Structure formats: C-alpha cells, structure tokens
Simulated assay, not measured.
Amino acid sequence: MFLDELTPFVQELTAHPAAFLGGLASGLLRLSLSDDPVQSWLSQQGATPTVSETAASRASARNGGPQSISID
C-alpha cells in the first residue's frame, strides 16, 4: 500500500533525475521563478518565460478586476 503511493515519485525520479532534483531543491528552498537570480539564469539557459505577475495584473485590470456573483 505504501509502495503504491511512492511509485509515481520513483518513476519521475528515474525518468528525469536532473529536472526532478532541481525542482525538488527549488521547492525546498522556496525559490520563485520570477526572482532575479533564478529568472536571469533561466533566460541564459534558454528556458521559456513563465507568466509573470505583471501580465496577470494587466489581465486583471483589463477585465475590471475581481467580480462578485450572487447565487439564488
């Protein structure tokens, strides 16, 4: 039973060990992809940019911000 829960973990670790361990380390260290040292390193590596907070705020402003609904 316990081994069944660990199977996806082990499969990802064996399939892509560098990416898995890098993601695990960044999660443990709580690194944000939008922080400058990480973002500049990712751009040097040729990684595709992620959605930034400014893009999300622009989309929110375009839609008029949060909207409320009423449920009858």
Rank of each mutant, 00 (worst) to 15 (best):
A19K: 10
A19R: 14
F20P: 04
F20K: 07
F20E: 12
F20T: 12
L21R: 02
G22C: 11
G23W: 07
G23F: 13
G23H: 13
G23A: 14
L24M: 14
A25C: 07
A25R: 09
A25F: 06
S26N: 15
G27P: 06
G27R: 10
G27S: 03
G27C: 04
L29S: 08
R30G: 02
L31T: 08
L31M: 06
L31G: 01
S32F: 04
S34A: 12
S34Q: 14
S34V: 08
S34Y: 02
S34M: 12
D35R: 09
D35G: 01
D35I: 00
D36E: 11
D36C: 00
D36Q: 11
D36S: 05
P37L: 05
P37H: 01
P37F: 05
P37R: 03
P37C: 08
P37M: 03
P37K: 01
P37D: 00
V38E: 01
V38W: 07
Q39M: 09
Q39T: 02
Q39I: 00
Q39W: 04
S40T: 12
S40Q: 14
S40E: 15
W41D: 09
W41Q: 10
W41P: 00
W41V: 10
L42Q: 10
L42N: 07
S43F: 10
Q44S: 14
Q44W: 10
Q44G: 13
Q44R: 15
Q45F: 08
Q45V: 13
Q45S: 12
G46Y: 03
A47L: 07
A47R: 09
A47Y: 09
A47Q: 12
T48L: 12
T48N: 11
P49K: 04
P49T: 06
P49Q: 11
T50Y: 03
T50S: 05
T50D: 02
V51G: 00
S52T: 13
S52N: 06
S52M: 00
E53T: 09
E53H: 06
E53L: 07
T54P: 00
T54H: 08
T54W: 06
T54L: 05
A55G: 04
A55I: 09
A56H: 00
S57I: 11
S57A: 08
S57K: 09
R58Y: 07
A59E: 09
S60L: 14
S60C: 09
S60N: 10
S60R: 13
S60M: 09
S60Q: 12
A61W: 01
A61Y: 02
A61C: 02
